[in-house]
Design a protein around this nucleic acid. Structure first.
Ligand code: SF4
Ligand code: SF4
Lengths: 162, 162
DNA sequence: TTAATCAAGGATAAAGAATATCCTTATTTC
DNA sequence: GAAATAAGGATATTCTTTATCCTTGATTAA
């Protein structure tokens, strides 16, 4: 069970978009080039963010993506779910229904303990991601990334932001 | 990102094995029939449990599987990891290394905040599963499963346990 | 007005992982 | 000695992920 690489891509792209000045957009092309990713496929991840309402888009030259809300109001969970989906990681195929001792008319009213426990763990994962804002990430990165690299990356982006 | 169905199978099988009297074994054949699962493929999941040291095996007629330790000392996490593996669910492909502004000699010493945050969430998931014992599951099931079904299932298993 | 650029999304292909079956081997029980 | 069992290798099938290509309609800049 491994998250798709698009999750990593989306998080990195949002971190970049968080640094964009108000009202400006950054294109798929620029984001793909900056991260060394296939443009067409990265586009699918960005479309996921767009469909989830996390980013605004603009067409034409100088178009692209920008965040739809402030980084402090955007959680990791929203970004992850936008590309990975909201389905729980444990799916129950109801194998208890195959129990040969089970009477024909027996009705398993609710999910059993196995499923509930697995879903609780899933929820713990989501709760952790829900507790981290995009602004938290930017704060950490701004401290950890080498100042020259931080600055030159920022300029690189600004040159290409429409 | 969805856990393999073998996880569900392994948990159910362990729950059954937890009810076995001391020193007795239950075969793949019986476990597969009880849960309505493909015997050969379920066998792979049980081999995973065996390789992880969670169950003991015995060959020949009346052979099969039994728990290697008491249900109170066997956690959900151990069972899940035995079939799903211990790899983290977020893998970092180090796309920051593709940053065009990055100097050639630049060395990214450690995992960045993105990866650390995702790994923390992963650990929260594991911590939750680590906190649930197989005995907890059996306790809940014994209360929730209809008494007649619980009893007849128990008898069905005993008839086939070597 | 025109040409270039962009997001969106459909179609399709390639690669990889999950699911499933079959068969052989060595061991144990009866 | 015969039957049953776990272990595991080989292979096939199906589904998901990854990736590319192309069309459409909107927007901007010249
Ligand atoms: S996990 Fe629970 S609900 Fe799902 S198949 Fe097993 S018994 Fe049924
Ligand atoms: S998640 Fe962090 S460590 Fe992984 S590629 Fe992105 S920047 Fe690098």
């Amino acid at each position: 069970m491994i998250l798709k690489s698009q999750v990593e891509w989306a998080l990195h792209c949002c971190a970049i978009l968080a640094g964009l000045p108000d009202g400006r957009y950054l294109s798929t092309k620029a984001l793909a080039e900056f991260h060394g990713l296939p443009k067409e496929y990265l586009s699918k991840a960005l479309q996921g963010l767009s469909q989830a309402g996390l980013v605004d888009t603009s067409l034409g030259p100088s178009g692209g993506y920008r965040l739809a809300k402030p980084p402090a109001e955007l959680t990791f969970l929203e970004i992850v779910e936008a590309v990975e989906g909201r389905q729980r990681t444990f799916v129950c195929t109801n194998i208890r229904a195959n129990n040969p001792c089970r009477p024909k008319d027996h009705c398993d009213s609710s999910p059993c303990a196995v499923a509930r426990i697995m879903w609780e763990a899933d929820e713990a994962w989501r709760a952790k991601l829900r507790g981290v804002k995009l602004s938290d990430l930017v704060g950490i990165l701004s401290q950890e990334v080498a100042p020259e690299l931080w600055k030159s990356s920022f300029e690189w982006v600004l040159e290409r932001a429409g």
